[in-house]
Design a protein around this nucleic acid. Structure first.
Lengths: 172, 172
DNA sequence: GTCTATATTCTGATAGAC
DNA sequence: GTCTATCAGAATATAGAC
């Protein structure tokens, strides 16, 4: 049986949670350590500085994104539908990592290459299934829009149903 | 002839610029004052504290959004096309205010009512023109997606053209 | 591996001169 | 209206005990 989450994992969980709930300005070492139930010194043992904490979050996103891409290309319902469902779901590890990354990305001097690479790979998967650059692009934008609302903290009822209806009109 | 921008306006410009370029954590009173070419004390004369600076930004967004809604409903090319063009344009006063507001919204305990109200009004205008809730919703999501990419600092070539093509397929 | 104590720098804000 | 000087509190990070 798997061990309970390691302190390192709990620290990353707490970091993402504070980012999601209160934004990057609230995500101080103190706040993250408290949310994870350890002291600041305890946090700094696992992540020697704040940049290391952010790098740890990016690495987690990269791994989750890679797994998601594999699931997307293998999905029996098709990559496009999988992508839309995935973009509306909330609370999953990938969603949380994506929202946290979006809140960190604003201060990245260079563009966040993890996010950029993931977006490019998702587009490629959509294009492979749909065979239509305009449609693939628009599906991705709809998914981005759903994330925009999630990042902004808005609810957006019916988005998935409406997106599916438009997709079926365009394919049919 | 109109006067040069007042110091108050230059401070709001600088605030938005720092938010867009470096994110909310970098938007300190010091950084904003320096970007506007005044001292911190000078800034605090116009905005007695940071909350007042943020309130000033929200008020600017509200006024620009109101003007945009009037232009959108009166646009000869139609509200939907106006909305899509508007969502891709960058550098305009409204775009800058929207991106800055998105970067401030993450730390708002309650949802940002200015952003929420604007989104509701834009949806209403889209629905009035298109008469189709699913289509109006998806067009708004595509616009949101374009903003998501702008907020994340990504370029997204061809988004407008692709969105227009899909829109014309759905209308035709 | 985790904690407490401490050093250092940054941030928001006040007071008062000009 | 704008500036400089200054302060209190917060944020990152280090050192060393346990």
């Amino acid at each position: 049986m798997p061990d309970a989450a390691s302190t390192r994992d709990r620290l990353l969980d707490a970091f993402e949670q504070v980012l999601i709930d209160h934004g990057s300005r609230a995500a101080t070492l103190d706040a993250v350590a408290a949310a994870a139930g350890v002291s600041k010194g305890g946090l700094l043992y696992h992540f020697p500085n704040k940049a290391a904490l952010e790098a740890g979050q990016r690495e987690r996103l990269r791994a989750l994104g890679e797994a998601d891409l594999a699931a997307m290309t293998a999905a029996p319902e098709g990559a496009a539908d999988y992508y839309l469902v995935e973009s509306t779901s909330s609370g999953g590890a990938l969603d949380r990592a994506l929202i946290a990354a979006a809140r960190l990305s604003e201060e990245a001097g260079e563009h966040d290459s993890v996010l950029d690479d993931l977006r490019a790979a998702w587009y490629h998967a959509l294009l492979t299934e749909l065979g239509d650059p305009a449609l693939a692009h628009v599906i991705q934008l709809v998914g981005d829009g759903m994330y925009y609302n999630a990042v902004a903290g808005s609810r957006d009822e019916g988005a998935l149903e409406h997106a599916r209806e438009i997709l079926s009109r365009l394919r049919g």
